[in-house]
Design a protein around this nucleic acid. Structure first.
Lengths: 213, 213
DNA sequence: CCCGCTGTAATCAAACTTGACTACCTGCTT
DNA sequence: AAGCAGGTAGTCAAGTTTGATTACAGCGGG
């Protein structure tokens, strides 16, 4: 699974109704073009695909107030909302060491209630720990890890990343337990989207260092 | 860039001459199907593509000794070798927080000489540190990170990962400085491929825990 | 002897991703 | 008044990835 569907569903949902360019702009605002595959092509493709699959309804809109070709607005359906929460929960608990999935989920974690978020994150820690045990048990030869030579460094790297990920998750759990952030049903939600016309301080301006791949 | 080209080039190079299934088997032996997109389709596609681009030469082979359709053996060219080392150096120094690239490069790091490997890894640490500085400076609003709300956790996560990655790299540098592993030109290289007929202890047997996405 | 099972080897369609490109309008300049 | 820079909105072809499926050979049991 890639992060794009979760990102797009989440963006549309926060707006209630959004066209492609709005979604694209939100994702840029969140920095998603830096750490995920949220490029225009992928976004429009995801919108069309999910409309075809009944997660979004496409509304054709008259040639737009401000320039450009006729645009399509999308609205999330019941199926789409279910899919959204399924993806969100999955992304928070699963450990596939692709950081874009977790990043995307973090952006939406407050759509859950505080208690569920904590449960999912604790599950995440458990999953990472299990993964760690299984990997070390399964991949270390009986006659010691020296057998692996430098190949062992790959495993070493995975395990290090897993430990670091688990530690970070524990920190997040503490912050959430400590009352940080506003979760579902706790009053005025934090608004993470740009209103129509609001300027985007993090738009694709000067090149960011990450571009130096 | 994805890890697949580096993996495939490296595998072919170690064999001298290899057909798709051999490459596929090596990658499985290295656990690459767990942490990268090294699925059959991608491997065969990469072989064909790189043959078209002159990095590999394809030799049609008679219908094979042991079952299956006629197979094609691939041999790396001079261009392919250059590309291999370019990719390898890039993968060691770049920081794109996609762990599969680094993992792949780790598997081949001993194809460089010890001194160059150290230089590249030190460069990697520098790149990560620069990235960290740039990101924190660029993405933290003037009026403090609290402005970001829970969205700030995404950045927090990136930064934590970057720090962890830098720390791990420093550890690796120490181990290599301390004389670990056998690098290019230091005698008998470590053999990380399966000989024809050798059984693969890490083949796709029982499900690994990572499959629980 | 032939049927299904396993292992070897590769292909294919469908989905996804990428990066460049089109098209249109507004406002500012010359 | 022409033109062009810049913002808005989206499309497209080419390339890549995925997961399922095909094709063939050898082997063992009934």
């Amino acid at each position: 699974m890639s992060a794009i569907r979760l990102l797009v569903l989440g963006a549309v949902r926060q707006h209630g109704r959004a066209h492609g360019y709005q979604v694209r702009n939100d994702l840029e605002y969140w920095g998603a073009h830096e750490w995920s595959n949220a490029k225009p092509g992928s976004i429009y493709h995801a919108l069309k695909q999910m409309a075809k699959q009944g997660m979004l309804i496409a509304h054709e809109i008259a040639p737009s107030t401000a320039g450009g070709p006729p645009r399509t607005e999308y609205e999330i359906t019941e199926t789409g909302t279910q899919e959204y929460f399924t993806l969100l929960r999955e992304s928070l608990t699963s450990y596939d060491q692709k950081p874009d999935i977790l990043s995307a989920a973090l952006g939406f974690v407050v759509d859950l209630d505080r208690e569920e978020a904590l449960e999912l994150l604790e599950e995440r820690v458990r999953v990472i720990e299990e993964w760690r045990t299984a990997v070390t048990e399964h991949y270390v030869p009986e006659d010691g890890p020296e057998q692996l030579g430098h190949i062992g460094e790959i495993m070493n790297f995975w395990v290090h990343s897993a430990d670091s990920g688990a530690q970070w998750t524990r920190g997040l759990i503490q912050r959430i337990k400590g009352g940080a952030y506003t979760f579902a049903g706790e009053g005025e939600p934090f608004v993470g989207v740009l209103a129509e016309g609001e300027e985007n301080p993090y738009g694709t301006g000067e090149t960011h260092p990450e571009d130096a791949r």
